[in-house]
């Protein structure tokens, strides 16, 4: 089966990963997964405001997933956070917290801000890919990068990296994030209908995609330092 955009069922969209793109942030990244374009910035570890959120033995990681009003294919989205954005902010925060060594920075907060600039399917996984790179770019110690993809089902077949059309007209959507080096799943959601066998196959297909994303993330990080290396003539 060929997909609407010509991809094979287990093929990712063209991807682009860049780190260190925002001067003011402690760490930042830009990610494209096909037409989905996301930017992430990390500020911290820093003093928490309000102070009552601080934890005596660890840092608190906060995440804000936000879609720009112009990012959607439908009519302008209100910039006020929707219930969907609040839920996604929560699961993204949890997916990243699993990887960050929070106990190294007690009594601080790490803020992760994600802006979806153009939404064309799988925005939450693109956000996680960008945010995890931004955390690494900020030099925050992590157990592993967090890499994410979504698996869908269309025309009875499982497909990797769901785009907007496949999300709207597909039969299921399974976003998954992992720490690939450790084989641990830090985000797992699903809607739609899958048999138990399909669900397990979806996890396996996701893992394959996640390994590819992981490679691209590592390459983006390496490139940043290689550029500095070259600049100083080594």
């Amino acid at each position: 089966m060929r997909r609407r955009d010509g991809r094979a069922p287990d093929q990712l969209r063209p991807m682009k990963f860049e780190v260190g793109i925002l001067k003011n942030a402690d760490g930042s990244a830009y990610v494209e997964m096909g037409l989905t374009k996301v930017i992430a910035a990390v500020y911290g570890p820093k003093e928490p405001h309000p102070r009552h959120i601080l934890m005596p033995d660890r840092a608190v990681l906060r995440a804000r997933y936000h879609m720009a009003p112009f990012s959607v294919t439908e009519e302008r989205k209100s910039p006020a956070p929707s219930r969907r954005e609040i839920e996604l902010s929560k699961v993204i925060k949890e997916a990243l917290s699993a990887a960050v060594l929070l106990k190294q920075f007690p009594r601080t907060v790490i803020d992760v801000y994600i802006e979806v600039l153009n939404a064309y399917g799988s925005t939450r996984v693109a956000s996680i890919n960008a945010a995890s790179l931004a955390l690494a770019d900020a030099g925050i110690p992590m157990r592993d990068l967090v890499a994410a993809v979504s698996v869908g089902k269309m025309g009875g077949e499982l497909i990797l990296d769901v785009d907007d059309y496949e999300d709207k007209y597909g039969e299921a959507d399974v976003p998954i994030a992992m720490m690939p080096g450790r084989g641990e799943i830090t985000l797992l959601q699903m809607d739609g209908l899958l048999t138990p066998e399909e669900f397990i196959r979806a996890l396996e297909l996701a893992k394959k995609g996640i390994m590819e994303v992981y490679e691209l993330q590592r390459k983006a990080l390496r490139e940043k330092y290689e550029a500095i290396w070259r600049e100083y003539g080594f």
């Binding site: 929560k90 699961v91 925060k93 949890e94 917290s97 699993a98 399974v174 720490m179 450790r182 084989g183 641990e184 799943i185 830090t186 985000l187 797992l188 959601q189 699903m190 809607d191 739609g192 209908l193 899958l194 048999t195 138990p196 669900f199 397990i200 996890l203 396996e204 893992k207």
Partner: peptide, 23 residues
């Protein structure tokens, strides 16, 4: 007997085998 929704919560993680056991 089909799966129609999944949600992981909390700041920890699950392995593939744990997800299968839960299912």
């Amino acid at each position: 007997g089909k799966i129609c929704a999944v949600q992981k919560g909390g700041i920890g993680s699950f392995t593939m085998d744990e997800v299968k056991a839960v299912m």
